[in-house]
Design a protein around this nucleic acid. Sequence first.
DNA 1: ATCTGATTTAGACAAAATCTAAGAATAGAC
DNA 2: GTCTATTCTTAGATTTTGTCTAAATCAGAT
Lengths: 148, 148
Amino acid sequence: MSKVSTELASAFRAAALRPTPQRYAVLEFLVRRSVHATADEIFHAVNRSDPRASRATVYNSLRLLTRAGLVREVGAEGKAARYDANLHRHYHFLCERCGAVEDIPWFDLSQAAAKAILGGRVVHDCEIVFRGACERCNLQQANAGEKI
Amino acid sequence: MSKVSTELASAFRAAALRPTPQRYAVLEFLVRRSVHATADEIFHAVNRSDPRASRATVYNSLRLLTRAGLVREVGAEGKAARYDANLHRHYHFLCERCGAVEDIPWFDLSQAAAKAILGGRVVHDCEIVFRGACERCNLQQANAGEKI
DNA sequence: ATCTGATTTAGACAAAATCTAAGAATAGAC
DNA sequence: GTCTATTCTTAGATTTTGTCTAAATCAGAT
């Protein structure tokens, strides 16, 4: 049993979610290829190999996995939602030029946030999305500038 | 000229965006009613009064205003995107039970983030979405507990 | 083996957002 | 003011995204 398999198995166990082949395939795809894929991409990827899954099942799996906290939906600019495995907590960076979605290592926000979250709210989860220009786009711009 | 009008006018000027009646109406609606509305709600609200705007124009305006930073798109859980005026910076809280979207006062993240944003990325903007249970939902749960 | 409830499927359906081509408004030149 | 080029808006078709339905399948308990 590979490392990923054990990880997935225990993730399902911890979430008390039945690890059906389809759900497993969806989560495995997201873990193995950290691509921030759309539901449609996942649908096609899963159907390239076994087990196959219908569109509805991909959406159902994603909803269940998201509710269980194993998967995270990244607010994709107007267009289709993007998903990524959330087995290890992290934040996101969204390049405004090329649209790339990158992971940013998690850091503790509780101190900074403590004074802001007033009233009787209870926070379960927190997502940060940084927007800007990724390293590649920055370099390209710099090079373009030099050429003039 | 009301306070809001001047605010809107200077916002358009600062963004170098032509303040057409339709765009103005969209932004004014978002500023006056801090409701985190969907595009459809904005479409209907704007068409209740003059000036009227087609669906396409509402979407176009929202895209332009978002790009200019005057409006912010809040990642709505799978469903239609929600928008709010972004004239004053802030973060968001999303209630997982009732779906309410609330504003959270802005706080400085740069120190905490500094060590995390490695490499050659340039950050223009940062959105934080806290998820959990809002005050009202918490109270309801507490009351329900007492009744048993 | 049989029953029960959860899960999956294909395709119809609904919702959300974009595109298109034509017309209207606007800014700037004169 | 008038002209012209450009930008903007419109209505409706179209595409994309996501959900629903009813029937078939599956896993586990008895």
